[in-house]
Amino acid sequence: MHEIFFYFLVALTALSSLSVVLGRNPVNGAMSMILALVGTAGLFAMLGSYMLAALQILVYAGAVMVLFVFIIMLIDIPATAAYRHHWGTLVAAILSTLTLGGGLTFLFLAPEFRQSMPDIAGAASNGSGLVFSSQAVAYGAGLMGKYMLLVQVIGILLLVAMVGVIVVSKDLRATNSGKSLPTPPSN
C-alpha cells in the first residue's frame, strides 16, 4: 500500500513537471505546476513532515502559484514558438539534461544510499542536532530557538524583496514629471 501510494505520487509529480516544461500553454503549465507541488507535498507527508506538506500547499500551491497565474493572465502572450528553435541550443539542452539526470541517478544508486528509513520512534538526541519529529511543536522550538537569528534575517530579506518589488514595478516614466526615460535602442 505504501509503495503504491509512493509510486502514484512520483508519477503525478513527474508527469505534471514534464507538462510544465513541455506544454505550450503557460496557464496549463501553471495548473500542472500546482499538481506537481501537491505531489511533492504528498511525498513530504510520506516522509513524516506533515508540517512541511501543509506549508508547501499553503505557500507554494496557494500563494506563489496564484501570483504566477495572475501575472500570466495580466501579460497577454502572443502565440509564437514556445521552444528555442536554434538547433545547437536544443541539442545542448537535452544532452546536458540527460547527463545531469543520469549522473544524479547513478550517484543516488550508490550502496550507502540504499538504506531503509529508520523508525521515527527510535529518534534520540545525538549531540547538538535537533531530533526529527512529525509534530509542529518541534519546528516551532527549532525556529524560535536554534535558528532565531536566521528567522530574523529572513524577515529582513522579505522586507527587502517587498521594497524591491515596489521599486521595480513602479512606472518610473509616469512619475518623472513629464520627462520620459530615454528609449532603449531597438535592435
Binding site: I71, R84, L98, G101, L104, T105
Partner: peptide, 29 residues
C-alpha cells in the same frame, strides 16, 4: 521505502526543471 528512492525522484525532478530552464523561451515558464 528506501532513501535512494526519494533521492532519485528528487534528481529526476531537478533534471526536468533544468530542461525547462534551458529549453523554454517564455520567461514565466
Amino acid at each position: 521505502m528506501m532513501l535512494s528512492h526519494y533521492l532519485i525522484v528528487s534528481g529526476i525532478l531537478f533534471s526536468i526543471g533544468f530542461l525547462g530552464v534551458l529549453l523554454r523561451k517564455n520567461t514565466l515558464v
